[in-house]
Design a binder for these strands. Structure first.
Length: 1108
RNA sequence: AGAUCCGUAGCUCAGCCUGGUUAGAGCACUACACUGAUAAUGUAGGGGUCAGCAGUUCAAAUCUGCUCGGGUCUACCA
């Protein structure tokens, strides 16, 4: 233990942090913070794994600060919080990075470079920036276990994923199907949504669009149309921007509640009379108003205005299942019941005709609704992007110019021409819209049916929605809004990715697809490997027979051939699984469950998480996959509380991106301002879920304001505590034996502890931090310390002084504990500085201590109220002094305060001494209404009055405002008053108005709310003397300080005082001497030596000599 | 295009859920004061069509609808 508190010359946060980091490492502070809670209730936290193939940015600092502070807080609350770090290592971004680095494309893999080599490169590259990440983790003070992280490419991790996949498989949740995915014929590959969202992929293109005419078939369910049309032909109109999909059309989708009309008119190309069906609200797009009910017989070719007439109208659902003739009958689907009108919820009347041409092969919506109605599927375009051989005259033609053919003819145009000729086109025009393009080839993407494996999440949709309601979402609207909607509209989870670096799907199939096996562990696979070799013989799986499989990645798993129950060879389904499966499975995969740690997960010790936090962009990513797997595998939520933090924008509100070059480098910010100030700024500036405009100036402000103030307060304490040898060795002085102001700050401190605890418990660190800021600045520094300064440097080391030290010490001790979760370095530094001397805590670090508990008995609302009164009154008096230009150093006789009730007077009386010394007046006079000369003002209380008066409110308010002094007096006397409004009598109560003492005629007054203060500004000669004495004290103190004297040095003083000061020096000689620690103070006639000073515009010399 | 969040002083944010009549704070700016915490502090001042429009209401920054601007997610769909 040290006997002196360390004093400092300057606050250097970055240096403090370096020192503390060293100590943490030396003493294994993090490990110990977990150890000290051995046996305590676990608080389960999951670290969302970052991908280390990109550099960390400032936005990573905010989510990690959030995670860290919750974990530190819960540790201080007595929970054991294990934090296993992790790395997300698979996936497309890794692969794209490697391809870029090697200068290859996907097609080159397996040709120019072996899959084994490629994957080895990925494995190395993915942890490229691990060192940088580790450095950030350390420097920002994020406590997470980096020594034993989970890594998603580890065999043990993948084995857990396989267990999960097999479990889902056994439950019947894993199936193979066709899905419509973005596909680039030019590149010959499917595209991920990430690739589709790369900048520049969406381009404006001009396409030929067609409103095609689908001829309805006459039948019982369509008879109402034909009745209206006089048994003429009836056509459905459907618009498409991709006419090349028309040969694959299998359905027409309408909106169930949309109103449609049957219209009699002419085809503008063939001039034949037709009857067409479309949505009513879209008619103006196709029909001119003046054509309505025009003369049909008079119409002739070339007329600008085409006559039309509505024959009947009906709802979309009336059209359901009406059949129509195939538009371009080149080929028919092998199965299904096509060419029907169906109902879908995605139909809008924004554009087109309100009837959607539906080709299940080329649109996700189309496919979904097609499946629902069993339309079948017809794919007349091959993977090169050209029509198949069975599309008549269009066979073999590319649907878009994928080969850069200079003679390419737009097939859409030819289809439009054909339809025009056949009286099957109602309108053909160019249309400009945005369309996605392949980022690598710049060619249009098309949506194409590809084989894929799915997880049937829709089977547990209701359960997922139900369990989601038990999750504590911060902010709540993310859970009900964004996430809730997402669940409501959920589709099955497409697991398949045709890539190389990822978790392989552990499914082996016979060639005909009739038999398959889903493998759930390494052991099972090795058994199957040997079995296949025995049954199939030869070289099958030869290289895997001895040691079994060593790496669960491609290409090794693809070498393995298994055998089906009927003895047929089975090969692995070539897909990898979506990386989101990797991260969604981390709760159990990080534990290598169920092969290890089975009890921890099954016994709900390590599952589900009590808390997770990530960026709001993870809502449909990690948050979703965690939830889906939690529900499907364990019928449980995966996390009880989730905080989604917003984005970090730059100072101008722009998203930070490498492209714009506005990324804030976290290392620089931390180096300059320190991690504590950075963390504090990030947490307190905006709620975590609001997007944050990051401005380094704000970090500087946090540094100056909060940390600077605390540091000053500490230094102040240390300076005097060292002089007095205060080490908290005396017994704790009971609160009731401490002065008012001590009990007040302890009361406020405990209120703060109460509030901060509630905020932290509610995952509102922003509110907690702001409350702490208010306390440190307004209450502790600018009121308590300022008012108590004299107590620390005046007088003997006895009861009052010890009380002050104990009080200030306790405030510092507890406030840094409240701050410790957010700003771990500075608080630990101060904790050590304090604790080294006092040894109050046996903990080696603030992070091993228990969070302060509220002492409710210390909270005194009355006390807090009257101190607020004292602050307000002081503030008013100071403003009055300013108004009449009288310095605070000049004592004044008294202030007058009108008193509303006895309680108020009692309250003020208790803090009268504080007020008097703060504003330098001799006394306080309380005025009650009996004095009679206070001018009062009355204001209606709208809230209570409004409820009673309703519409008469305005008149009542006017009447009250017009009250005379007599009216007010009457109301105060009787407690009620009857007034007449619009001829009606209404009674108002005292509680319906607010009466304040506004003015005391003849006095200088100031108001704040209901509080009024008047100041007596008469300066008597005696007051003048006292003021001058204080001026002199001030000047001599300055000389002492400038001369570098110690606080305790005694002095002799000679003053060549001018006449006007003499009486002050004589009358207040003792006072002055005590203040300046002088043994003698003499007035001399003239003085050559000494320092020139000025008081009230008079200059004279003062000589100060230190006694040896 | 849909969903959702955001828009209050030059800047960063409270207040909105639960409507109440002079809309607050900090920073920055200006002036004055204070000073044994001093790169701190106090007082005063300027600075706002609470994004816009409409509605509900005696009363709207606050509730409702629409519009505009910004962000995010989902989709790109006829």
């Amino acid at each position: 233990m040290s006997s002196k508190y360390q004093e400092y010359n300057q606050l250097n946060l970055p240096q403090i942090e370096k020192d503390i980091l060293q100590q943490w490492e030396l003493h294994q502070a993090f490990e110990k913070s977990v150890e000290v809670r051995d046996g305590a209730t676990p608080f389960v936290f999951y670290e969302g794994p970052p991908s280390a193939n990109g550099l960390p940015g400032i936005h990573h600092v905010i989510s990690r600060t959030l995670k860290d502070l919750v974990c530190r807080y819960k540790t201080m609350q007595g929970f054991q919080v294990k934090r296993k770090g992790g790395w997300d290592t698979h996936g497309l971004p890794v692969e794209l990075g490697v391809e870029k680095m090697l200068g290859i494309t996907k097609e080159d893999i397996g040709k120019k470079i072996s899959i084994a080599e490629y994957n080895d490169t990925c494995r190395k590259e993915v942890l490229k920036y691990k060192d940088k990440w580790d450095e950030l983790t350390q420097k920002m003070g994020y406590w997470v276990d980096l020594k034993d992280p989970y890594i998603t490419f580890d065999n043990s991790y993948i084995e857990s994923l396989w267990w999960a996949l097999q479990t889902l498989y056994k439950k019947g949740f894993l199936y193979k199907s066709v899905s419509i995915q973005p596909y680039s014929p030019a590149a010959g590959t499917g595209l991920s949504s990430a690739e589709l969202n790369m900048p520049g992929t969406y381009k404006d293109v001009k396409d030929t669009t067609v409103v095609a005419m689908f001829k309805a078939q006459q039948a019982a369910n369509s008879q109402f149309l034909f009745d209206a049309a006089g048994n003429d032909e009836v056509y459905f109109l459907a618009w498409t921007t991709t006419p090349w999909t028309l040969p694959s059309n299998l359905g027409l989708t309408v909106g169930g509640n949309i109103e449609y009309v049957l219209v009699k008119t002419f085809n503008q190309y063939t001039h034949l009379p037709v009857n067409v069906i479309m949505a009513k609200v879209l008619m103006p797009k196709y029909f001119k108003a003046e054509g309505e009910n025009a003369d049909f017989d008079a119409y002739k070719e070339g007329d600008k205005v085409i006559p039309w007439q509505i024959l009947t109208s009906f709802k979309g659902k009336d059209l359901e299942n009406i059949r129509y003739e195939q538009l371009l009958p080149f080929a028919q689907p092998e199965e299904g019941d096509p060419f029907r009108v169906i109902v879908g919820d995605f139909v809008t009347t924004e554009d087109g005709t309100g009837i959607v041409h539906t080709a299940p092969a080329f649109g996700a919506d189309d496919n979904r609704v097609g499946k629902k109605y069993g339309l079948g599927i017809l794919t007349l375009v091959d993977k090169q992007g050209k029509f198949t051989d069975n599309v008549g005259e269009f066979s073999g033609r590319y649907v878009k110019n994928y080969k850069d053919d200079p003679n390419y003819k737009d097939v859409d145009v030819d289809i439009a021409v054909k339809l025009k000729k056949e009286n099957r086109a109602f309108k053909v025009e160019k249309y400009e819209h945005t369309y996605p393009h392949c980022w690598r080839t710049d060619k249009p993407v098309l949506y194409y049916p590809l084989d894929a494996w799915f997880i049937k999440t829709t089977a547990v949709k209701d359960r997922m929605i139900e369990l989601n309601k038990t999750i504590n979402w911060k902010p709540a609207f993310t859970g009900t809004g964004r996430f809730g909607n997402w669940l409501e509209n959920m589709v099955d989870w497409n697991l398949s990715r045709s890539r190389y670096w990822g978790t392989p799907l552990p499914i082996w199939r016979t060639e005909d697809g009739t038999e398959e096996k889903c493998i759930g562990s390494i052991e099972e696979l090795n058994g199957e490997i040997r079995k296949a070799n025995e049954v199939l013989g030869g070289d099958v799986n030869k290289s895997y027979l001895h040691e079994g499989i060593l790496d669960l990645h491609k290409p090794y798993v693809d070498d393995i051939i298994l055998v089906s129950d009927s003895g047929k060879p089975m090969r692995r389904e070539p897909d990898l699984v979506d990386v989101w499966f990797d991260s969604g499975a981390m709760p159990f995969a990080q534990q290598h469950y169920p092969f290890e740690n089975k009890e921890a997960v099954d016994g709900r010790q390590a599952f589900p998480a009590d808390f997770i936090a990530e960026g709001v962009d993870q809502t449909r990513g990690w948050f979703y996959t965690l939830h889906a797997l939690g529900v499907m595998l364990f019928d449980s939520v995966a996390y009880k509380t989730v905080v989604s933090n917003g984005l970090v924008l730059d100072a101008n509100g722009m998203k930070m991106s490498k492209r714009l070059g506005n990324v804030v480098n976290p290392f620089e910010t931390i180096a300059q301002y320190g991690a504590d100030a950075t963390r504090w700024y990030l947490i307190t500036n905006a709620s975590p879920w609001d997007s944050l405009k990051f401005d380094v100036k704000g970090v500087g402000e946090a540094q100056r304001k909060l940390f600077g103030t605390l540091y000053n307060t500490y230094n102040f304490f240390a300076m005097y505590a060292n002089l007095d040898n205060f080490t908290f060795k005396e017994a704790y002085i009971p609160l009731e034996e401490r002065p008012e102001i001590d009990r007040w700050i302890i009361s406020v401190l405990n209120s703060l502890v109460k509030d901060a605890t509630a905020y932290f418990d509610d995952y509102e660190p922003t509110q907690a931090g702001r409350a702490v800021e208010r306390f440190v600045d307004e209450h502790l520094s600018n009121w308590y310390v300022r008012l108590c300064r004299r107590r620390f440097w005046k007088g003997d080391y006895e009861h009052d002084k010890i009380s002050a030290y104990q009080t200030l010490y306790e405030c510092l001790e507890k406030v840094i504990q409240l701050m410790a979760p957010v700003s771990p370095f500075f608080t630990d530094w101060m904790f050590n500085n304090l604790n080294k001397v006092t040894g109050r805590s046996s903990a080696a670090s603030i992070h091993h201590t228990n969070f302060p508990e509220v002492q409710s008995e210390a909270i005194d609302p009355d006390l807090e109220e009257r101190m607020q009164l004292a602050q307000d009154i002081s503030s008013l008096v100071l403003s009055l002094r300013k108004k009449v230009n009288i310095k605070v150093r000049q004592p004044l006789q008294k202030i007058l305060i009108p008193i509303a009730d006895a309680h108020m007077q009692e309250q003020i009386a208790k803090v009268a001494d504080l007020i008097k010394s703060e504003v330098n007046v001799k006394g306080i006079d309380y005025l009650t209404e009996t004095e009679g000369f206070i001018k009062k003002k009355i204001k209606p209380n709208f809230k209570s009055l409004g409820a009673k008066m309703g519409a008469r409110m305005k008149a009542v308010a006017a009447a009250i405002t017009a009250f005379t002094d007599a009216d007010i007096a009457a109301l105060e006397r009787d407690g009620h008053y009857t007034l007449t409004v619009d001829g009606e009598q209404v009674q108002i109560q005292l509680s319906d108005v607010e009466i304040i003492s506004e003015d005391i005629p003849g006095w200088t007054v100031a108001n704040k709310g209901a509080l009024t203060v008047a100041l007596d500004i008469t300066i008597t000669p005696q007051l003048q003397d006292e003021g001058n004495a204080r001026e002199l004290v001030n000047r001599i103190q300055k000389i002492r300080k400038d001369s570098g004297f110690e606080l305790t040095d005694r002095i002799d003083v000679k003053v060549a005082a001018v006449d006007s000061l003499k009486s002050a020096i004589i009358n207040y000689n003792d006072y002055i001497c005590t203040e300046i620690l002088a043994d003698s103070l003499d007035v001399v006639a003239a003085l050559q030596e000494g320092t020139e000073v000025e008081v009230n515009d008079l200059k004279f010399n003062v000589l100060v000599n230190k006694k040896s």
